[in-house]
């Protein structure tokens, strides 16, 4: 997909909570011997997907100087909304002091709700319906105690402000693509606290099939190949999957390195690829081209190509993601259980 008018990223910001728990600590509780990642973030008792979104949006707005009164859409992608019914975006509008003449909705598509929001906003901006829009991917995902997901389900989020390229963007969205199919790898019914999944079925027929289909189709359609990209970010539910999918598609470990955060912060679900993109933009230079491929269970994958412009230096996120990585502190299982509300009866 290409927009009729060129659009791009005007500003960005990412946020992760301060607390991490090591996989070895969780494994000790449940008597497991091997673990998928090293550690994962979890939200403090007073954080949720909305407060994480707020931080990411605030950093994006303040770092880029985006005009608050010209933001015409706030779309929040999340699978861990604080409310089942009551939008997060309206709180963001009032908390960030944005114009109330704005579109606002919550998007849900498992882990790709955030990239879905980018697609929608890119279209709105390109068509001229709005001047600026914010797409957020944010989650405080939950894993049932003892379940495989408990090792990786993490918290974090990122926000992208999208505008027309002629308003001055730090990266142009060159093209995008989306691929979906009915694949029941992972789900959560209404009213349930924890999601369910089909174990190894989440791999080959779900994650790998959809990302590879989406990226290959994108390459065919627009004539790209892995060597055209300086960096790539793939959805990262663990350490292994993004490395393997990169290799299968012909990308090197160097290309995915800056955006591969799951070993330390875990799977931030709707936040995952956007946080990876933010970390990559934190180090990218003018002229760099970045590929991003998300994955959402159920299932689908969005692919994007971003071309970094000369505005990158002045628009970089302040603070960068690294500032949040530098303040991480390790907590024990009992603090994790308490902060996540797992003891509430």
């Amino acid at each position: 997909m290409k927009t009729s008018n060129k659009v791009g990223i005007y500003g960005y910001g990412a946020y992760i909570p301060r607390y991490i728990i090591e996989n070895s600590v969780i494994a000790q509780v449940w008597g497991k011997l091997s673990t998928p990642i090293k550690s994962k973030t979890f939200p403090s008792y007073d954080e949720d997907s909305l407060t994480i979104a707020y931080e990411a949006c605030r950093i994006a707005i303040e770092s880029s100087g985006a005009p608050r009164d010209r933001i015409g859409a706030v779309y929040v992608g999340s699978e861990s909304k604080p409310y089942a019914v009551k939008p997060s975006g309206t709180v963001l509008v009032d908390a960030l002091g944005l114009s109330r003449n704005t579109l606002s909705a919550d998007f849900e598509f498992a882990c790709k709700a955030g990239t879905e929001a980018i697609q929608a906003i890119a279209g709105l901006v390109s068509s001229g319906m709005i001047d600026f829009g914010i797409a957020v991917g944010t989650d405080t995902s939950q894993g049932r105690p003892g379940d495989e997901l408990e090792y990786t389900a993490a918290a974090g989020g990122a926000a992208l402000i999208i505008s027309r390229a002629d308003d001055g963007v730090l990266a142009v969205i060159e093209a995008s693509n989306s691929y979906v199919s009915d694949t029941p790898d992972f789900w959560r019914r209404s009213g349930e606290k924890y999601p369910r999944h089909l174990f190894r079925f989440t791999g080959e027929p779900a994650y790998f099939h959809h990302i590879i289909s989406s990226v290959r189709r994108f390459f065919e359609e627009y004539g790209y190949s892995p060597k055209d990209f300086d960096y790539a970010i793939f959805h990262q539910p663990n350490t292994k999957f993004p490395q393997r999918v990169a290799k299968m598609l012909g990308f090197s470990m160097e290309q995915i390195k800056p955006g591969l955060l799951s070993p330390i912060i875990g799977n931030t679900y709707s936040g995952a690829t956007l946080v990876g993109l933010a970390a990559t933009l934190d180090v990218a230079k003018e002229g760099d081209r970045i590929l991003l491929a998300s994955f959402g269970s159920g299932a689908g994958s969005d692919t994007f190509s971003f071309l970094v412009t000369d505005l990158i230096e002045e628009r970089r996120a302040k603070p960068p993601l690294k500032a949040f990585l530098d303040r991480l502190v390790t907590k024990d299982y009992s603090t994790y259980v308490r902060y996540r509300g797992k003891l509430m009866l």
Partner: peptide, 17 residues
């Protein structure tokens, strides 16, 4: 300054930020 949950009303579930 940052924005956080202050408290939640038990019965209604309403969250105050």
């Amino acid at each position: 300054a940052t924005l956080r949950k202050l408290y939640t009303y038990g019965e209604s579930g309403h969250i105050v930020y």
